[in-house]
Amino acid sequence: MEHYNMNLTLKVWKQKNSKEKGNFETYQVNDISSEMSFLEMFDVLNERLIKEGKEPIAFDHDCREGICGSCSMHINGKAHGPWEKNTTCQLHMRAFKDGDTIVVEPWRARAFPVIKDLVVDRSAFDRIIQAGGYISVNTGNAVDANAIPINKKDADHSFMAAACIGCGACVAACKNGSAMLFVSAKVSQLALLPQGAPEKRSRVLDMVAQMDKEGFGNCTNTYACEAECPKGISVDNIARMNREYLSAGISSE
């Protein structure tokens, strides 16, 4: 791909804290390389803002390798920007042309309150995991890796669900702000394996109860989550969680 430089107009959501109202601010950025990542473009802008004595734009990031799930921008109307199955940190500026205007917003959901600018509080996800996203493991020596035989297909499906990085793009993309794709991936990865069997019923009931408590919306099967998930998590997992929930809900006391 040929390298080129571009000048861009950024419209970025600025919000002081979770209490105050936010608004868009417009920034001009010049000579942005097509080989930069989207976050590097923000680094360039922030360095300039700091030099000018202005407040830099707050945004979440960590590994910048597309695996930690920290970055979270809603770019030009899509979670993680225009590329499919891609995180914001792996979005490169060659996705844009010279003269483009780019609108950048935080995830918008009641369960993800804005902390500052583009940073949202995703601790609701942590509390859902704490409610049941774990397995019981005996102490002592580590068990031999293949001691328990597992069907290859189940292992594959579990692994595909475990690819979820918990970034929250599913919530951001869903018109109902529903967290069903995230929770169903976390339920599925354990429900498919024998190691997850002891908490089979309590896990799904507790995690769904916590999800509801956090104020996420209800799933209406529009599948926007799957379309915008950077890891391609399938809505098959939502059906599996529904199945698990219905059987646990009917059979438990």
Binding site: A111, K175, N176, A224
Partner: peptide
């Protein structure tokens, strides 16, 4: 479900995902 998103997106390309 409308309460779950109190602030709407200024730009939302919903047709692209469903």
């Amino acid at each position: 479900n409308s309460r779950a998103r109190p602030v709407n997106y200024a730009m939302n390309r919903a047709p692209a995902n469903g």
